[in-house]
């Protein structure tokens, strides 16, 4: 019996982390899948969100800035705002750059953010990190029950972001965005303000990445600069989106859950390896994820759920009573 409950709670922890990755994937899908913007600095915006939410919601302390003791939800809204504003500043500078250059610039910015987080101890308590970050509804549930509450909380936010992203995708705004992605020159010729659309896309994506960061801080209750390890998060999210199907919001969620499940399940097996191999298991997993990405890129580019443009509704619009322009 205990084994089954153990397994159940293992599943809960996988689903919580999977939900956070699903958020990141949805955010990246807005930037890359819809807008064609290559953001390689995902972890930077994730970290901003994590630190913002942590600082806003922890009780007052001398160790780092604030402790403003606000509710968790306010913290997450703050995370979205600060990450979005940072994204806006970055986009002001970089959004005109072509894909490869944007990749370099976004990594550079993520790296600068990491340096700030490590070095500015008055703000973030440096390498010692922030502890005692509250969970949402932490006063009503504790222990394993709290995990289930948190699971629901995370997936509620995933649902909201999914609905927003789908609405964006189907809207005229999303249509223009895809037009810009597929053919920038013709979209510009049709009178679309390419730069403005890209800015908006980038900011919206970054804000959602910030929310994901905030949620991870509340989940682990502790935050240190190692959470901003530049490679793994950024890389995993890219693999997830590519495998799930870039341009498809459902694909983003499926990809996030699928790859995260694969990543977690391999952990079970690698933990049973002889000890001299078990210490190296994470490297084997990284190697496999790297190879998986190559496979997806070469043979499986559309992903599990390929992008499907919404149907054109000329008849309905032409005949319907409320003709919209």
């Amino acid at each position: 019996m205990t084994e089954i409950t153990g397994l159940l709670f293992y599943l809960v922890s996988v689903l919580i982390a999977g939900g956070i990755y699903a958020l990141l994937c949805l955010a990246l899908n807005i930037q890359w899948g819809m807008g064609g913007l290559f953001n390689a600095g995902i972890v930077g915006f994730f970290a901003i969100g994590a630190y913002t939410s942590a600082i806003l919601s922890t009780p007052e302390t001398a160790k780092h800035l604030g402790g403003f003791d606000m509710p968790v939800f306010t913290g997450l809204v703050g995370a979205a705002i600060i990450a979005g504003v940072t994204g806006w500043a970055v986009a002001r500078i970089c959004v005109r750059l072509k894909s490869d250059y944007l990749a370099m610039a976004s990594i550079g910015i993520a790296e600068i953010l990491r340096l700030v987080i490590v070095n500015e101890a008055w703000l973030t308590n440096g390498s010692l990190g922030i502890s005692g970050i509250p969970r949402p509804f932490g006063e009503y549930a504790s222990g394993r029950a709290a995990d289930i509450v948190f699971l629901a909380y995370v997936w509620l936010i995933v649902l909201i972001v999914y609905l927003v992203a789908t609405r964006l995708y189907n809207s005229p705004w999303g249509r223009s965005l895809r037009a810009i992605r597929d053919n920038e020159a013709s979209a510009a010729a049709a009178g679309k303000n390419v730069e403005k659309f890209r800015m908006q896309t980038f900011v919206i994506g970054c804000a959602f990445m910030g929310v994901a960061g905030g949620l991870s801080a509340h989940y682990f209750r502790f935050l240190s600069p190692s959470a901003t390890d530049p490679l793994l998060v950024t890389f995993l999210v890219w693999v997830m989106l590519m495998a799930g199907g870039s341009g498809n919001n459902r694909g983003a969620i499926v990809g996030a859950l699928g790859i995260w499940a694969l990543w977690s399940v391999t952990e079970i097996f690698t933990n049973r390896l002889p000890p001299e191999w078990a210490t190296r298991s994470s490297f084997i997993r990284m190697l496999l994820v790297g190879l998986l990405l190559q496979f997806v890129l070469q043979k499986f580019r559309a992903g599990i759920l390929p992008e499907k443009s919404p149907p054109l509704r000329f008849d309905e619009e032409a005949n319907g009573p409320d003709r919209k322009r």
Binding site: S99, D100, A103, F235, M286, G290, L293
Partner: peptide, 18 residues
């Protein structure tokens, strides 16, 4: 488009390192 090769080189970086 070259961006796919860029993404691929990200993966290669990870493969080399692991």
């Amino acid at each position: 488009p070259t961006i796919y090769t860029v993404i691929s080189s990200f993966g290669v970086a990870l493969i080399f390192r692991s």
